[in-house]
Design a protein around this nucleic acid. Structure first.
Lengths: 336, 336
DNA sequence: ACAATTCCCGCAACCGTTCCCGGGATCCGC
DNA sequence: GCGGATCCCGGGAACGGTTGCGGGAATTGT
């Protein structure tokens, strides 16, 4: 458990620790080949491991990126994290992941912890787009390198990456209409997520475009997970509200709703279509597979990393907002 | 971007940095109440944030736990991580997560990186139970506090936590038999995962117990994910191999197999039952819901943390192997 | 009034590494 | 043989905290 230090190596070889340090970073013009060989061999023999903490303190760079995600139930954030890791690991960065568990106080704690730890930069998907606004602003003011992704925040002078929610929602709903569905139920998201209003706006705009009246009873607020989706679906059916398609805010909602439909022996898609935003592999795994809008995870990770690295290099660089197109994948749940 | 240090506070107040340090840790018997108040106020005003790296270096403790997981596709490891975080965060620990992506070289890199970083302890689920054996042994020999969980490793003098694979697999297969299924297909796991042989052994033992002949063609190796499961299922059906139930190594395999069955209009569970190990919420979300063995995640996290903390306190403490019972949840996919 | 104790605070070393600076040795050219 | 460049190496100050030790001032006891 006692770790060997460069001082130990220096003593063993009877040279100074500065030389050892230089030898280990193979600074060829300041230390002879022979010495390098001797040091490297001794380091190997003594099983020396560089203490990263000391390096970080000295260099004032942690070589670490923090990622704050709202939850770890959906695989989306993990795919994102994995993608970021694949890009940044070869560049010598460590990735720290913190899960806010949909609680904005935990999120704040996680964020502060990263900052105390002097990470080089932070990627964050906010779990509440208003509650922590002032908190974020403070960090933005202090030029902490940070980039929002997926669940971004309005009114903030900060780089962000998200997919084009409005248009993809628009196309998705319009697809339902083209398939002949008319009374489209919308399981909306909670109001603390910014995307909720975007998707609702798209929904209304599509109806207007196609001359369909907007019925308030066809829009129900339904949380984000499968329990929320199932409950909402049951409420609607029990209330006798007539509809022939469901447009869900999340994939989990859709799975919950789908299960309710199947248990009630309502056939998908002939009696009721189902489609959702935020689709992942899950939507393809079930039967029937669900038509969904999928976020371009890899692409988002790539852009987020690019923006973050640019902020790290120059904290006062102008912010950038990247909006990526999302893919709509049509599957059997909406093919009449 | 320039962070305030205790030295800055000391200068601003015209006192020494030792006093500031003591005041900030509210060392009441070595610094006066008045000074503490002045320091705390000034710290607040100057937006001082303690540099954790410096503290760690000095105290020689990173107050950090590293978790190495094989993949982040299944939610199991994230639930585990979330659970660990919930236990350890209140105790002032940070959690670092590294994803090996089922690659043992990446795993090695991740592990070494944690060690270089002098984390207090490491929780690891191995992605290959043989490839890195010598590597692990070296760390065990050096008394690095580490605990294996879920995918554990044999022949290693190290604490570990896993669920009782053999018995739960046994019960699961036996359940199929009690339901009247006789020709049970086993989609086995890859041989680099230790559990593969355990589950296969259980499968054979159940058959023997019930006097059913073991047919080699009913055991096919099938990777771990849904693509593997679907391919294997297709191969078996195309080869005309007769069976009336499928016992899957993983949940994803089961979902892949289930999809193939449904696409071929083979009814579940009347024509073919399906059951799997490593079940999560996913198994409940699909229709019909899949009978599965679920690992006691929270319990595993609790035990893993307990074992790890004990190793951290006393690195030479004797190792312990904890085997927890897993739950079998019977669902409609196996009810004839 | 004086010794003993208590109370605060500053000095300086330390954690393990990097890196600037300076100095001795060797080499080259003239 | 001498000035200057080049090559290696050691000393020591950082990075930002914590902590043992010691000392001066204030308080207490007799």
């Amino acid at each position: 458990m006692k770790y060997v230090t460069i001082k130990d190596i220096a003593n063993a070889l009877g040279i100074s620790k500065s030389t050892v340090s230089r030898a280990l970073s193979s600074d060829t013009r300041n230390v002879s080949e022979r010495t390098i060989r001797r040091v490297v061999e001794m380091a190997q023999k003594m099983r020396y491991k560089k203490n990263e903490m000391a390096v970080n303190l000295r260099s004032r760079r942690a070589k670490t990126i923090g990622i704050v995600v709202p939850e770890a139930v959906t695989t989306f954030y993990l795919q994102f994290t994995t993608a970021v890791q694949r890009i940044l690991q070869p560049q010598g960065y460590r990735i720290i992941l913190a899960i806010s568990d949909e609680d904005f106080l935990t999120e704040r704690l996680n964020f502060e912890s990263f900052d105390n730890y002097r990470v080089d930069g932070i990627l964050i998907s906010s779990c509440h787009h208003r509650a922590n606004l002032e908190f974020y602003k403070e960090y933005v003011r202090r030029c902490t390198p940070m980039v929002f992704f997926d669940r971004t925040v309005a009114d903030l002078e900060c780089s962000s990456v998200r997919s084009d929610d409005y248009h993809s929602a628009f196309f998705l709903v319009e697809h339902l209409i083209y398939q002949g569905y008319r009374r489209i139920l919308h399981l909306a998201g909670p109001d603390y997520i910014r995307n909720t209003s975007e998707r609702l706006r798209a929904y209304r705009d599509v109806l207007k475009k196609h001359g369909i009246d907007y019925c308030p009873e066809l829009v129900v607020s339904a949380g984000i997970d499968e329990v929320d989706g199932a409950e909402a679906m049951n409420r609607v059916l029990d209330a006798g509200i007539r509809c022939d398609a469901v447009f869900c805010f999340t994939e989990l909602q859709a799975l919950g709703a789908k299960k309710v439909l199947q248990e009630r022996a309502i056939h998908i898609p002939s009696e009721m279509a189902i489609a959702c935003m935020s689709g992942t592999k899950l939507a393809t795994l079930v039967h029937p597979a669900i038509t969904a809008v999928e976020q371009p995870v890899e692409q988002m990770a790539k852009e987020a990393v690019r923006l973050l690295l640019s902020k790290i290099e120059n904290p006062t660089a102008p912010s950038e907002t990247v909006v990526l197109p999302a893919n709509m994948v049509i599957r059997s749940s909406t093919e009449k």
